[in-house]
């Protein structure tokens, strides 16, 4: 069973602030609780298959200049720098 403390920890990890804490915790617990059905799938011995792509099939890794200055689209761009909040020490 997922605990309230775990959900609170994860919300901090995911950088999500929530107001109606109880409602969120209850719903998230209910959703994660539903995933317990996976325990009865009997897939312990199953191997996870992943698609493979040959490196030769990938496009050439070269710089393609973009026509617009994308940096100018950033909200806090100030002409020569991006204004960001201070980092805590």
């Amino acid at each position: 069973m997922v605990t309230q403390e775990e959900i609170t920890r994860v919300s901090k990890l995911m950088k999500i602030e929530i107001d109606d804490h109880r409602e969120y915790v209850d719903k998230v617990k209910k959703m994660i609780g539903y995933f317990d059905v996976l325990d009865s799938a009997g897939v312990e011995s199953e191997e996870i298959s992943m698609p493979e792509i040959q490196i030769s099939s990938l496009r050439e890794d070269k710089h393609i200049p973009f026509s617009d200055k994308l940096i100018e689209k950033i909200n806090h761009y100030k002409g020569t720098y991006i204004h960001a909040p201070k980092m805590s020490s």
Partner: peptide, 22 residues
């Protein structure tokens, strides 16, 4: 970042929390 991300709606927040947990 946490304050800014309050603008996500409730379902997105729930799924991100699950996405951090599972």
């Amino acid at each position: 970042i946490s304050k800014a991300r309050r603008n996500f709606g409730p379902e997105v927040k729930r799924r991100m929390m699950i996405g951090g947990f599972v």
